[in-house]
């Protein structure tokens, strides 16, 4: 289990993190969302020892993350960083070695990963000669080359074309299948929704929502039922207990149900008015959940 536990960090008067906590199980993909400046990068940098937390700690397998543990973490910083004048293959080998591999296995791993991320022919080229997309791939390969136990990736998808996004997504899912917990931050919420088992939404320095996407949906106010009954008289749904009418327009009603309310009762009431042409839960998208979580001032428990 990778645990971020109560991280607090202030830069001067600016309280960046006010107790960020979440955990990621082995094999789980965790999407880390939040507005710009919410503290995602700071949280990840604390995990990598690049910033010091004022309070709280990050643990892996119950053990505080220290130098030795960090060498088992694959990391991709927000600001991409590679030696511009070093060749791709040598660079990957070097990073594999820094993470504790011996020369032979490191060279083999570098070759394998360059091949897998479509950089096979560019192994002998200097990084500065590659396109930005390819540099991004090298960066990812640098994070993966040592076969890490944990992956922490800051905005890995930014700047990639759709094909690049797909191959990166595939690579990350494969790591999850190996049993690696993967944490990545992203603004592309559709992608997070598609890939992640769990999502954490960071706003104003703390996690305002976290859990699986279905969990977030079920707990977030905003789960709505849309019923279209063209012949229904106005105010037909108000009679059903536990139902609040959000909007009603010529037979097209949007309802919110109190917890425990049976949606079949609502259907029955609708059918009693005549024809029902539409009856469905409107699932809020992650974008809506995100907007909701980030704008509501109170904390939403998962």
């Amino acid at each position: 289990m990778l645990e971020f536990d109560g991280l607090v960090k202030a830069y001067g008067d600016n309280q960046v993190l006010k107790g960020v906590s979440f955990s990621v199980a082995p094999g789980q993909m965790f999407g880390f969302c939040g507005s710009n400046g919410a503290g995602k990068t700071t949280s990840m940098r604390i995990a990598m020892g690049l910033a010091r937390a004022d309070a709280g700690e990050v643990r892996w397998s119950g053990r505080p993350v220290d130098e030795a543990v960090r060498r088992r973490i694959g990391y991709m910083p927000e600001e991409r960083g590679l030696y511009p004048k070093m060749k791709v293959g040598e660079q990957l080998t070097y990073f594999a070695r820094l993470h504790g591999m011996d020369a032979g296995p490191a060279a083999r791993a570098a070759e394998t990963w360059a091949e897998r991320l479509g950089l096979g022919e560019r192994r002998g080229d200097r990084v500065e000669k590659l396109s930005l997309g390819n540099q991004q791939r090298v960066q990812l390969a640098a994070a993966l080359v040592s076969e890490p136990e944990v992956l922490i990736l800051d905005e890995p998808f930014s700047g990639l074309d759709p094909v690049g996004v797909d191959s990166l997504a595939e690579a990350l899912l494969e790591q999850c299948r190996r049993g690696v917990p993967v944490v990545f931050s992203s603004h592309q919420l559709d992608l997070v929704e598609r890939l992640c088992d769990a999502v954490g939404i960071l706003a104003r320095g703390s996690i305002v929502a976290s859990g699986t996407v279905p969990e977030l949906r079920s707990t977030t106010a905003g789960r709505q039922l849309r019923v279209v009954a063209p012949d229904a008289p106005g105010g037909w749904a108000q009679a059903v207990p536990g139902v609040r009418v959000v909007s009603e327009q010529r037979g097209d009603t949007v309802l919110e149900l109190a917890p425990g309310t049976d949606d079949q009762q609502v259907l029955a009431a609708a059918l009693a008015t005549g024809r029902v042409t539409h009856f469905a839960w409107r699932e809020p998208t992650l974008v809506e959940l995100f907007r909701d979580a980030v704008t509501t001032p109170q904390e939403v428990a998962a």
């Binding site: 955990s23 094999g27 944990v150």
Partner: peptide
Amino acid sequence: MTATADRDVRSTGPAHSD
């Protein structure tokens, strides 16, 4: 606060011989 993953979740990470 932890969510359970949909797919197979192992209790330990992968082993490394190298």
